[in-house]
Design a binder for these strands. Structure first.
Lengths: 243, 243
DNA sequence: TTTATAATACTTGTATACAAGTGTACTTGA
DNA sequence: TCAAGTACACTTGTATACAAGTATTATAAA
């Protein structure tokens, strides 16, 4: 693969991944980071050359990214859509929707094991903060919510999550990397929100859960204008390093 | 493509489709109809031979079906999961979830044009019933709900619908074909439910909408045990014709 | 008879080749 | 200068080839 530019996607997450998956993840990161600007037209042949690969894995990547709505496959070339602020708001709409749904089921089952698992993840997040590991923190943050969703055993709700996850992952990765550099004390509040989430599950308190969800999301959404956009600029200029 | 067996998917819906799409749709139908039983192992090479195509479009198809959770890609071969009763229930969970969400937005906008469009679709459905055209009826039925969802311009909710749609399409196609043969008078009630839905939108009456949605879904779900399972048997034995 | 090893017949993932179609740019004619 | 047509470069979709890996089966040794 081309090494003229640093990879944005954590390489350690791709240890056993295929070339197709690598291209998918890296392309997604570059699009969401704004390195590949929206409106740009991607050619299978050109991408294959850029990544020193054949068209097969590139095709696979484009199909996936199209299903995530960050590119649009047309007759001649794939047009980059990118991630707009509207998309980010919509994604949180969907997260609120499915996590609320999940919580409804949650209050009806035994959550002993779940909350223990969540506490473990919370401590992992704390360690990640301590060692300024943005990628690890992002991973655990996503895992936190995925663990909750998985706990109710609803395969179609999980499917929605899985379709949403890659784009969220990229977004959160970029966002957290920026925060670790600039607004480090944000993390105190993020941790508090997550702790509150666990409390809501333990107490089976619906309104408390909604409250913590909103807090968490408002926290992120409020930052979109300034932090996110500046982050996009940052990514364009720097090309973050992660090995 | 092999013509040793009749195709389950309407050929007229595939007029401009690629080989990959054809294989995707046909495989999905056969899996959901139970022609390909759950637990079966699909080989890319074997499927390519069966459909007189190469591995490329078959691969594409398997990737898509895996994203729909009706097959599972493993190291050696793709394992058929199929559509269980649990899946059908879960799909309706999700439909209730997103259509409720959509309705919340709907009550805040002008629905003049939407209801007119829906009335048109309703009349199309009536014609389809009159001429015993199960495929056309299924198409309009799905279009009815998709039109409602599209009207609120929420691309991520639409994404959820799009991911769900193919499986629902297959299921509804098979279900409706069976009903046209066996329980023809079901359609009176289906039409009433849809008319009620339009009324709910016009009146912006939330509880009326939920009521019609539940009626519509309960109607379908109640039939699952008997009708759906018998339909599966039917499909296995007959191999429906549609040209 | 059982166990270890080797041959085989699969599998996936990737590369490459080719056909058919589409847009662009250039040439030719007025 | 402008219009129509033609060649070319580039696109997708599909077929085929190949490498690397995995289960299975057959063979050989104990």
């Amino acid at each position: 693969m081309a090494d003229s530019i640093n990879f944005l996607y954590p390489e350690k997450w791709l240890l056993k991944a295929s070339v197709g998956d690598r291209i998918t993840c890296e392309l997604r990161m570059r699009i969401i980071a704004g390195l590949i600007e929206s409106g740009a037209i991607l050619s299978e042949n050109k991408l294959a050359a850029d990544f020193s690969a054949s068209r097969s894995p590139v095709r696979e990547a484009l199909k996936k990214l199209a299903s995530e709505n960050i590119i649009r496959l047309e007759r001649m070339g794939a047009v980059v859509i990118g991630l707009t602020e509207k998309d980010i708001n919509e994604i949180y709409d969907v997260r609120l929707l499915i996590e609320s749904f999940v919580f409804e089921r949650l209050v009806r089952i035994d959550t002993e094991e779940l909350t223990k698992e969540l506490s473990k993840i919370l401590e992992m997040m704390q360690v990640a903060i301590k060692y300024r590991d943005a990628d690890e923190f992002s991973y655990q943050d996503l895992l936190f919510h995925e663990t909750i969703i998985r706990s109710v055993n609803h395969s179609h709700i999980l499917m929605i999550w899985n379709n949403l996850k890659p784009v969220m992952e990229s977004f959160i990765l970029l966002s957290m990397r920026g925060r670790f550099q600039e607004t480090y004390n944000d993390f105190t509040r993020i941790m508090e929100n997550h702790a509150l989430y666990i409390e809501a599950i333990k107490a089976k308190d619906r309104s408390l859960m909604i409250q913590s969800l909103h807090k968490n999301f408002d926290d992120v959404q409020g930052k979109v204008d300034d932090l996110w956009m500046s982050q996009q600029m940052l990514a364009k200029g720097v090309g973050l390093n992660n090995d």
